[in-house]
Simulated assay, not measured.
Amino acid sequence: MDRSARWTAAARARESARPDRLFDDPWAAALAGGVDAGPENRYLPVRTRYFDDAILAARCPQVVLLGAGLDTRAWRLPLPPATTVFEVDRAGGLGPKRSLVPVPPGCARREVEADLSAPDWTVPGLDGGAPVLWVAEGLLFHLAADAVERLLARAAALSRGGGRLLADVFGTGLLRLPSLAGRRPAPFCTDDPAGLFGRAGWTACAWDLAGSPAANYGRLGGRAGVGDPGMRTYLVNASV
């Protein structure tokens, strides 16, 4: 299992243990497998809660979690039983949950093995003629630029019945941080989310900045890319 997936689960476990938690994930600690979340990352709980709220507000009958890994939303969110959650990840990426989350989800759940960097991945069982909500949480940062554009275009093409896509995208200022200096391939960042999603076929692209009133929850001190626009983090809600 990808260490970054376990690290993210460890961050969810840490948040779940807080008395003022933004969400509760009772399986996160087991899924983390002893991996330490390290220093507190105040952004990750905000992102998780923001996407939780957006998923519930969308009331979409089909939810596709791209690069799902150790995500537990099919269990922990109060989704209607008629909702189908498709969890898409590479081979072996979804296996740990089968034994470590011992209860059935409250909605329909399907596992899909796919290479999301390929141009022709698909989601078996998805009804392309019905609305679909795509969720790419923490995914685009780890892909090459051409793979990001292919993924976004593929999701748009599979949304013939209408679709929305939730994703987080970092500004290019992140690449100037010493911790990322010289990293190859460079993580994906952009200062033009509207152009990125528009080129891929998403006809509308709205976003909230992490730290703004809509994406803060009292954790980020009101920061929203003030000063250096390149340090913005975009929480995108696009539609076709």
Rank of each mutant, 00 (worst) to 15 (best):
G221C: 08
D20E: 14
V148W: 00
P104W: 06
D192H: 11
A153R: 15
R232S: 13
M231C: 12
A37L: 08
L143R: 13
R176Q: 14
L56H: 09
C205S: 06
A144F: 09
L79D: 01
G34P: 00
L151A: 10
G227P: 03
G225H: 04
L77W: 06
L44M: 10
W202P: 11
G195V: 08
A57C: 05
T190H: 02
P78L: 10
L77F: 05
V132M: 07
P131D: 00
A29P: 04
D168T: 04
A58I: 10
A147I: 05
V132S: 09
R109N: 00
S179E: 15
L174K: 13
A215G: 08
A167R: 09
A29W: 11
L151I: 04
G106M: 07
G138C: 02
A214L: 14
G69L: 00
C205V: 15
G125R: 04
A186T: 13
R21H: 15
Q62E: 02
T83D: 09
P119F: 01
G125I: 05
P45N: 06
V35I: 14
V63T: 11
V135L: 15
G211E: 01
L143Q: 12
F188Y: 15
R42W: 13
C60I: 05
A68K: 08
A32I: 06
L165A: 08
L177S: 12
P104F: 06
Y50M: 09
N216T: 13
T48I: 10
V35M: 11
L44E: 13
R109M: 00
E40S: 14
A167M: 08
F170M: 13
F197G: 07
S179V: 14
R42A: 15
R110W: 02
E15S: 09
A210L: 15
A130F: 01
F188L: 05
N41M: 12
A57P: 10
